[in-house]
Simulated scan of single mutants.
Amino acid sequence: MDRKAKAVVCREWGQPVQVETITVEGPRRDEITIRIGACGVCHSDQSATTGKIPYPAPLVLGHEAAGVVIEVGEGVTAFKEGDHVVSSFISMCGKCRQCVRGRPVLCENARKAMFTLPDGTVRTKGADGEDLNVFGACGVMAEYATMHVDNCVKVDESVPMQNAALVGCAVMTGVGAVFNTANVEPGSRTAVFGIGGVGLNAIQGCVTAGAEMIVAVDNNEKKLEMAREFGATHTVNISEVEDGAKAVKKLTGGVDYAFECVGAGAVVEQAYKCLGRGGTAVVVGVSDPKDRTSITTLTLPADEKTLKGSWLGSARPQYDFPRILGLYKAGKLKLDELVTRTYHIDDAPQAFDDMLAGKNARGVIVFD
């Protein structure tokens, strides 16, 4: 059945987000409709409003959410009404070479569902009946969302919605970069550049992995305080030093792993330069398509350094989302502390402003 829902919509690049009443159609084959309980406000959503991530407007925002299944479409057997689920903006066909080799985040068919559902259509309509695109096959910054089953992961219903939601992006991206992409070993020396929601999770991933040193690098003292609360052993305020990479090297002698969580070529260079011999720099942040990074090529063979990327923490969502929530339930990951402030959907524009001002570890829209 069709449902009316308040949703956060980008109508035009460069303009503030709008809260509108839209229509969410019921599920078709292999789809489910979810009543959203909570949705994180992520920098990637903001990037979609500026064109940095060039999704076409009009666009229903949101890709990091948790909710309850309220309707299932034809052929759905893995979900039933009442199941708690977390959204995944990674579409996985399950059949291509990358999927079958265990790398679903690199699915060769995922780009077919960047701003629609996998079949190329949407279930979201505006007030005038026009199609509304959806962020990452999700569009979950809304009271309801209809999604393909491959973009949903069933989770433990005992986990609060506002915590479970964050696993869909911030937590998976940061922790996964440490666990899956870098495979950080106990005793490692690490550095994290950019202490937003993803950077904080990279820090606590390093803590859980047993890193000996964890250096947080940012230009916001409030964020560096958060970093210490999440387990950073040292901090560098990059606005107070001439060269961030040199400052990190002076503290550590060169790190084994550096994580760039900003999405800027110049910061990638800093992360790479602070590596010790044999070190690995992991680029986590999403940069402008025109951005470039320059490194000294000789250091790759001579020092056996590695520069690599991490997309959603190299996740296998069906496996990793429940695993991360299990670590939270065991007291090994902080999720409650990540939620700095909650917002009503009508206050979504303020939530975006607060994110850009660096006020929150993570702001979360909570639905009644």
Rank of each mutant, 00 (worst) to 15 (best):
K6S: 13
A7V: 09
R11D: 13
G14W: 04
Q18F: 01
G37H: 11
G37C: 10
C39A: 15
C42R: 01
H43A: 11
H43M: 08
Q46C: 00
K52H: 10
I53A: 07
P54A: 11
A57S: 14
G62N: 04
H63D: 06
A65H: 06
T77F: 00
A78H: 08
F79R: 10
E81R: 14
V86P: 10
S88R: 05
C93W: 05
R97Q: 13
R97V: 13
G102F: 10
P104H: 12
L106R: 07
L106H: 13
F115Y: 15
P118Q: 11
V122P: 04
E130S: 15
N133Q: 12
C138W: 03
M141Y: 07
M141D: 06
M147V: 14
H148V: 06
V149F: 08
C152V: 15
E157M: 00
E157D: 15
S158Q: 13
V159E: 08
Q162W: 01
A164Q: 10
G168M: 06
C169G: 04
M172N: 10
T173I: 10
G174T: 02
N180H: 11
T181W: 01
L200Q: 03
I203L: 04
Q204A: 08
Q204L: 07
G205W: 03
M213I: 12
I214Y: 03
V215Y: 00
V215P: 04
A216D: 06
A216L: 09
A216R: 03
E221N: 09
K222A: 14
R228K: 15
G231C: 01
T233F: 08
I238A: 14
E242V: 02
G244Q: 09
A247E: 12
A247W: 03
G253V: 11
C261R: 01
A266G: 03
V268N: 09
A271W: 05
G279L: 06
V284W: 03
D288P: 01
D291S: 15
T296V: 14
T299Y: 03
T299A: 05
T299P: 02
D303Y: 13
E304N: 14
T306H: 07
T306M: 12
L307R: 05
A315L: 07
Y319H: 09
Y319G: 00
Y319W: 06
D320L: 11
D320V: 09
P322V: 10
I324G: 01
I324R: 00
L325H: 08
L325R: 08
L335G: 07
L335M: 15
L338C: 04
L338F: 10
V339D: 05
V339F: 09
V339Y: 06
Y343C: 06
A348F: 01
D353M: 12
L356Y: 07
L356C: 09
L356Q: 15
A357Q: 14
A361M: 07
R362I: 07
G363S: 12
I365T: 05
I365P: 02
F367R: 11
